[in-house]
Write a protein that binds this DNA or RNA. Structure first.
Length: 343
DNA sequence: AGCTTATAAGCACATATTGG
DNA sequence: CCAATATGTGCTTATAAGCT
């Protein structure tokens, strides 16, 4: 066995002060010498990825490829590549991820020159007219929330700053893929398997996806529609004071629907979600910095955590994870609760 | 089959931005 | 103001596809 210890960027202060590691784990040495191409990095959620390793991957559900590259040095003199949206020539499409892009929104529209003399490589860059998901090629943050997937119903042209994720025939549609790509699972996978530079498609194709089942797909799509509806209508013009809460709740429900489909053991689901503790989630239309309140250590699955019953019950955390609390303690808590007139 | 051309994936370089 | 780091562009190279 080898000790594997990691100091994450946000853990550097703690390391300097008291040599604290952000993460540590003993891993078997044999995995590193099995083959010449073995990856020496150990993902933080390695148990999660091991658990999901036998299922389907994104590659099974969708065509995943970058958008087009224009020519540079070899571009003919006077030939244009990208122009303003209002230009008379060219094809409408997407060239860059704008800083304020929301996952329910659409990247800035622009005119692209798709003529062969202007293009070095098309890949998935040509317009299809069919719904697709656009994924950022450059991470939107250094920390765990790196992905911003947007839904492009029109199937427009795109440059290599985006990855087009296109549903395969017979598989789930773009809305489902959109929800999956914005989920904590996809973001954790990216965080665990990529460096800080690019969202590499060879890696993302290997991302585990939930088993095929209408019992998963319907709730995910419904939750996705609900969140999209709330998040796109909750601008400053419309919102009352409670609107952001409703948006956040809908987002949590979408996450919970996706997580439910992955069906992780509670301990692993908790391990995965803890990756996002205190981390800003950009472009989601609400303030989002983690799932579990500080001090709540039990393995409460997300769908239980956000259920009304759980939120209302002060004893919830103990009742949902009775194995972590001795019967005596539970009994004592019940007595105490009764003494205060609850239940 | 063996050679030639095309494509995809990842990365290298150049420029921009940030921080000391 | 300079050095370090981040970001955008499009180039390089390995592999696949096409061709004779």
């Amino acid at each position: 066995m080898l000790w594997c210890r990691r100091v994450r960027e946000r853990g550097m202060e703690a390391f300097k002060e008291r040599l604290a590691f952000s993460w540590e784990r003993q891993v078997p040495q044999c995995g590193f010498v099995e083959s010449a191409g073995a990856d020496l990095r150990v993902p933080e959620c390695d148990e999660v990825w091991a658990y999901l390793s036998t299922g389907r991957t994104l590659h099974d559900l969708a065509s995943v490829a970058k958008g087009l590259d224009h020519k540079g040095k070899t571009l003919p003199a006077g030939c244009w590549t990208v122009r303003d949206e209002s230009a008379q020539t060219g094809v409408l499409g997407y060239a860059n991820v704008n800083e304020d892009l929301a996952i329910c929104g659409e990247p800035s529209l622009i005119k692209l020159n798709l003529e062969p003399r202007a293009v070095l490589s098309y890949r998935n860059g040509k317009p299809t007219g069919k719904p697709q998901v656009l994924l950022n090629y450059a991470p939107v943050a250094r920390e765990a929330w790196k992905l911003k997937a947007t839904l492009d119903e029109k199937g427009r042209a795109l440059t290599s700053r985006f990855v087009a994720i296109r549903p395969k025939p017979g598989g789930p549609g773009a809305l489902y893929l959109w929800a999956i790509m914005n989920s904590p699972v996809a973001n954790a996978f990216a965080y665990d398997h990529l460096g800080k530079r690019d969202i590499r498609i060879g890696t993302m194709r290997k991302m585990p996806v939930p088993a095929r089942s209408p019992a998963h797909e319907t709730p995910i799509e419904q939750a996705a529609l609900r969140y999209r509806q709330l998040a796109t209508s909750a601008g400053p013009l419309f919102s009352g004071a409670s609107a952001p809460d409703a948006v956040k709740r809908a987002l949590l429900e979408m996450d919970a629907a996706v997580l439910g489909a992955y069906d992780l053991p509670p301990r692993l689901e908790r391990q995965l979600l803890d990756l996002f503790a205190g981390v800003e989630r950009k472009g989601v239309g609400c303030e989002f910095r983690g799932y579990y309140p500080p001090g709540l250590d039990a393995y409460v699955p997300l769908h239980e955590l956000i259920s009304e019953d759980y939120a209302r019950s002060t004893l919830g955390r103990f009742r949902e994870a009775p194995r972590t609390v001795s019967p005596d303690v539970l009994a004592a808590l019940r007595t105490a609760a009764e003494a205060y007139g609850e239940e």
